[in-house]
């Protein structure tokens, strides 16, 4: 028990929370954008996976990690738009299109990995490099906070910055208003002469950028290689975070952090006596409990509102 408390209340634990939260925050921001535009984007899982692979290849065979980062983002955008093309222009059900895309991403990444490095497991042999970690000048000298906040991968800082960017984009710009109306009132949007299709494509594109960054972090920050199915459901967790955060950037980011705490806990509790499987189960269980708590609260408040209306 003591070792457990020690494991949780240490600076390394909080440091790892931020590390683990990075891909979740980025991906959930992508999910926030698309769900505000009225699209359920479970394809973000496949987008992350594909970007992670292309990032590694671009870094190893191109011009290093930053080049890989850019290519990963471009890949994310292209994949997202492809999903959009299938679901909006070809009019396939969007969830089905996403499931099809995820299937292709899981298999396709292994196919290309094998075709290029002759390994079906990982690209460890490639030596593809890592995006740099950054020490923050003043904060790094503050005793405890410095240990937690400084020396993270650059993408982690980008991720937290993206929360603000997405917030500003959604609530303070004309494009954000259009994206939100694409989800809430698509007819109103068309009635003022804005193309719904165009706005949804733009939303998908932005979520592709964020998904691409998340993928790049997985293979060039979190670890320094691509491995088969390395996202392991993080895209789905991001979707859950979006649902729990009621599709607001701040809410989704907080939910992502909650899952990250659960996940980091599962790593640090593995040294204790608690069975590892039950600890590994934790992040997913927390997600479900969180979703239920949120949904229960919402349905309660809706009931109250209806009762109030009935009284009047």
């Amino acid at each position: 028990m003591e070792s457990m408390i020690q494991a949780v209340f240490s600076t390394t634990f909080l440091f790892s929370v931020i590390r683990v939260a990075t891909p979740l925050i980025l991906a959930s921001m992508g999910a926030v954008i698309t769900s505000n535009a009225g699209i359920t984007n479970i394809g973000i899982e496949g987008v992350m996976l594909t970007s992670a692979l292309t990032g590694v290849f671009a870094s190893a065979y191109g011009f290093g990690p930053w080049f890989g980062f850019v290519i990963a983002i471009i890949t994310g955008v292209v994949c997202s738009l492809a999903i959009g093309y299938a679901s909006m222009s070809l009019k396939a059900d969007s969830v089905l299109a996403c499931i099809a895309f995820n299937t292709m991403a899981v298999g396709g990444t292994v196919y290309f990995m094998y075709a290029i490095v002759k390994d079906k497991g990982t690209t460890i042999a490639l030596n593809s490099g890592k995006l740099p970690s950054i020490e923050i000048p003043i904060i790094k000298d503050i005793p405890i906070i410095g240990e937690i906040l400084s020396n993270h991968n650059v993408v982690s800082y980008i991720a937290f910055f993206m929360i603000i960017v997405v917030y500003v984009l959604l609530y303070k710009t004309p494009l954000g208003l259009r994206i939100r109306s694409a989800g809430k009132a698509p007819n109103a949007l068309s009635s003022v002469g804005v193309s719904l299709l165009k706005i949804r494509y733009i939303a998908l594109g932005i979520s592709g950028v964020l998904g691409g960054m998340a993928g790049a972090f997985m293979s060039m920050g979190y670890v320094t290689w691509f491995s088969k199915n390395m996202t392991a459901g993080r895209g789905f967790i991001a979707l859950a975070a979006d649902a729990m955060g009621n599709s607001t950037p701040i809410g989704a980011a907080l939910s992502s952090l909650l899952f990250a705490v659960a996940e980091a806990l599962s790593y640090s509790l593995q040294v204790t006596m608690i069975p590892p499987e039950l600890v590994q189960m934790l992040p997913y269980l927390v997600t479900i409990v969180g979703l239920v708590a949120y949904a229960a609260k919402r349905s309660k408040s809706e009931k109250k509102r209806k009762e109030k209306l009935a009284e009047e």
């Binding site: 070809l90 009019k91 396939a92 499931i99 099809a100 292709m104 298999g107 292994v110 196919y111």
Partner: peptide
Amino acid sequence: DVASEIVAIIEGLVIILVAATAF
């Protein structure tokens, strides 16, 4: 010596085209 995972791509493409009502 072609990775068997190519079927995932085939499956995915078939699904998208079959599910695509505008196709």
